[in-house]
């Protein structure tokens, strides 16, 4: 617990007062990690904008290589084979496939094998902001794909029987 706090402290660059406060809390626990010397802050160095994001990637144990991959945040489009729009409200994060030997056909069974440990991962979020927050927390570079553009005109049964003054253009064989 205190380790996580320390990490937060390191990343967030808290103000002196808050850092001291956290440090005291650290001290209160029976942690044997030495206190960091956060207090001395150089006024000449401009601070990075504060983000209220817990840097989870430091303690998550995820491989460093994951930070070199850009993730895509997107909203899945409706499948054209079905009418329902289910699952197209959520936001998802996914990874590009690994180029080169990310996938191969296993000689034993003929099934697909993969060296990409993210290929089976599917993360869903309620909102775009949730997804962005998660990606930032993990320290992943991300981009947000544009959402589906829908422009459905009003539909009306009466349109089938509209009078058209000119030559008949639509031949209905229904």
């Amino acid at each position: 617990m205190s380790l996580l706090r320390l990490c937060q402290q390191a990343v967030r660059q808290q103000t002196a007062a808050r850092a001291a406060c956290v440090a005291t809390r650290n001290h209160a626990t029976d942690s044997n990690i030495p206190q960091t010397t956060e207090q001395k802050q150089d006024a000449a160095i401009t601070e990075a904008p504060q983000r209220d994001v817990v840097a989870a990637d430091i303690v998550s144990g995820a491989p460093k290589e994951l930070r070199h991959r850009v993730v895509r945040i997107f909203q899945p489009t409706r499948s054209t084979t079905q009418s329902g729009s289910g699952k197209s409200n959520r936001w998802r994060i996914d990874w590009d496939i690994l180029p080169g030997a990310g996938r191969w056909e296993n000689p034993l069974m003929g099934w697909a094998s993969s060296a990409d440990y993210m290929q089976g991962t599917r993360l869903s979020f309620r909102t775009k902001e949730d997804a962005i927050h998660f990606a930032e927390k993990q320290g992943w570079d991300y981009y947000v794909a544009a959402t589906e553009i829908k422009r459905i005109p009003p539909k009306n049964y009466a349109e089938n029987f509209l009078y058209k003054p000119d030559k008949l253009r639509l031949i209905r064989t229904k």
């Binding site: 422009r151 459905i152 005109p153 009003p154 539909k155 049964y157 009466a158 349109e159 029987f161 509209l162």
Partner: peptide
Amino acid sequence: VSSASKPSSAG
């Protein structure tokens, strides 16, 4: 949204 096409899309 209202139709982007010409305005005879509905009766």
